[in-house]
Design a protein around this nucleic acid. Structure first.
Lengths: 126, 126
DNA sequence: ATTCTGCTCTTAAAGAATTAGGAGATAGGA
DNA sequence: TCCTATCTCCTAATTCTTTAAGAGCAGAAT
């Protein structure tokens, strides 16, 4: 039986996406150069971008000779679906359970605490 | 160059692990039977268990002719490392940032709100 | 006692997905 | 014309998922 396509970004795909998100628009050469170490060959980046395009994460337009790629999904959306995945798999679909667990395990910064407090108070009013 | 091994439990692996966590100790046949649909062939379960053993998630002892498998890592530990993965990849290693985002996006239950409040108050005291 | 049945594990393999990159055509410019 | 950057096509290694085929053994049936 065939296996299902990966629901999340793979390691290599994510590395390339991070560059695309940062640059907004970039040619293959630009991505290759901006990639943090370890470096990848031009062709490897190209292959990964083709896969990402196939999966609907990026698109490209031709600009003269080169293809200029740009993201179709925002970083926030990718983050959201990665989190959703974990919440479904391990927290019975309860985002609250995960949030609670995170805060139990580690003290948030003062700034985060303040924002959490105000959020919670607003929720409690309603 | 080779594909890198998955840092987290894959879909099939997780399905088997859920059964092992639930049963505590189980033979291949027991796992196969307890597996929620869609069903898997005996051999598929066996192979997956072998992989899980190789990765250090389960171990087995022989009991008569059969192997009895049991988990080496708790469900909570697996959940923790999955979360850690997402936090590293998408939230700059800040668990607080993820918690904040979760709570912003969705109102926790009353019970969760109460527990969050008391946690936060305790943190604020210190 | 021999055969059959049914369970066990082992071996093997196919096929998809991921990751990496070489070879070569080609278009554009020096 | 020749060089270089670019894309297309292809190979290859490895993992993951699934399963078939088969060997071995215990216990039941003959």
């Amino acid at each position: 039986m065939p296996r299902r396509p990966s629901p999340t970004l793979t390691e290599a795909e994510l590395r390339v996406m991070e560059v695309i998100w940062r640059l907004e628009r970039a040619t293959v050469a630009e991505v290759t150069e901006a990639l943090p170490p370890p470096p990848l060959a031009y062709n490897s980046v190209l292959t990964t971008l083709r896969i990402l395009e196939q999966k609907g994460h990026v698109t490209h337009e031709e600009a003269g000779r080169a293809f200029v790629y740009r993201p179709l999904i925002a970083r926030e959306a990718a983050a959201g679906s990665a989190v959703k995945n974990v919440v479904e798999k391990f927290f019975g679909n309860s985002t609250g359970a995960l949030a609670l667990r995170l805060i139990e395990n580690e003290r948030p910064s003062d700034d985060e605490l303040a924002r959490l407090r105000s959020l919670i108070e607003r929720y409690e009013e309603a």
